[in-house]
């Protein structure tokens, strides 16, 4: 399992437009991808409702995990989305 630990930089947290962009990007990948707060229960990164319920706010860290071919690339893409204030 490959992981990326990133700090949420978007002003609105991982909600609204940043959350939608995140889910749209994750949904394009074939493998399972999960998101969790450090030590928390992982949720499906392709589920906007689960992601909203995770309630990751600006300044908080999240862990994104995936496995399989192309996992490095998709995790980098997702981590970059989270780390920018869009």
């Amino acid at each position: 399992m490959i992981e990326r630990k990133v700090t949420v930089e978007s002003k609105v947290g991982l909600h609204a437009r940043p959350a939608a962009l995140f889910v749209q990007t994750a949904a394009k990948a074939p493998m399972e991808i999960t998101v969790a707060k450090p030590g928390g229960i992982p949720v499906n990164a392709k589920s906007i409702l689960s992601l909203l319920a995770l309630d990751a706010r600006r300044g908080e860290q999240i862990v994104i995990s995936a496995d399989g071919e192309g996992a490095e690339q998709i995790l980098d893409d997702l981590a970059a989305l989270v780390a920018e204030d869009a």
Partner: peptide
């Protein structure tokens, strides 16, 4: 547009 697109994603949410 953003709100409506986000809402359509919610209705298609795999968990839901």
């Amino acid at each position: 547009r953003d709100v409506l697109n986000a809402q359509s994603m919610m209705v298609r949410d795999p968990g839901l």
